[in-house]
Nucleic acid binder design. Structure first.
Ligand SMILES: [Mn+2]
Ligand SMILES: [Mn+2]
Ligand SMILES: [Zn+2]
Ligand SMILES: [Zn+2]
Lengths: 135, 135
DNA sequence: ACCTCTTTTAGACATTGTCTAAAATTATTA
DNA sequence: TAATAATTTTAGACAATGTCTAAAAGAGGT
């Protein structure tokens, strides 16, 4: 597991305790978690952590390309991406699955005069597990 | 403007007053509105309309292929689509723009054992208008 | 130590969406 | 028509997700 501090330093982000903890949660659980998920997990160890810090930090890390924002119909999930891939969202259990098929995504910086900052597939359906009765 | 009643009848959906009103709002304003937007508009004329009815109806119309669900980072928007197209979401003003460039989207029914019900691009950035100061 | 800039905190607030039990409406049967 | 059954709507509580602000805390430079 890569060191959170190194990752932050490389992007010139001051490695505060809170930022390290937030990043470590993502590096440890590889679950495509929402900000709320991460907030709840951190609260167990550090009850003083602020919701605002979690949201601010996740935004900061995304803007610096450290995390990918995975857009789903109910929340944004965060992913530390080492190799590019797509995602599948199950509308039943709300889990996000990695998809390693290489669908191409247009590489555009601008369209119709709008600046594109993020383009991704949103693939929604019912997952394998839920189809089999889900546990 | 197509008749809401006709559209509902064609899909064998009982054309109740509420459903007609909801569909008419979408046909009239072509704004990629959220359920909440539609709810607020209807409340002005019919204060007894229920939030649950709006959400239930939009789900029903989507499941029947009458409306497209446009997924954005903050809400699902509804679109009556006559000609297929993509969408751009401005993270500043939260407006959704039609994109008529024909990026291809993989036509998959299943992937890794998961059933795909909906696949779309999610294109996020800053719109033309906001780049020019917004208004 | 002092000043400044950055970061975090606490908590209110806003927005979006789900759920349920009761009421109202519509369709079917007798 | 009257009784019954099925569908639809309502009201409002609740849950989940995200934003905002003013004050406090912390870090770095002089
Ligand atoms: Mn992933
Ligand atoms: Mn559209
Ligand atoms: Zn599932
Ligand atoms: Zn904009």
């Amino acid at each position: 597991m890569k060191k959170a501090v190194e990752i932050l330093n490389k992007s010139n982000i001051r490695p505060t305790l809170q930022r390290i903890n937030i990043l470590n949660v993502i590096l440890k659980y590889k679950n495509h978690m929402s900000a709320e998920d991460i907030y709840k997990i951190l609260q167990r160890e550090t009850p003083t952590i602020s919701r605002a810090t979690v949201y601010n930090t996740l935004n900061l890390l995304s803007k610096n390309g450290i995390l990918a924002e995975v857009i789903t119909p109910d929340s944004v999930r965060y992913d530390y991406v080492e190799k590019f891939h797509h995602h599948f969202y199950c509308e039943k259990c709300k889990k996000v699955y990695d998809i390693h098929d290489e669908f191409s995504v247009p590489n555009i910086k601008k369209i119709d005069g709008h600046i594109v900052k993020n383009i991704q597939y949103c693939i929604v359906g019912i997952c394998k597990n839920c189809l089999n009765g889900g546990e």
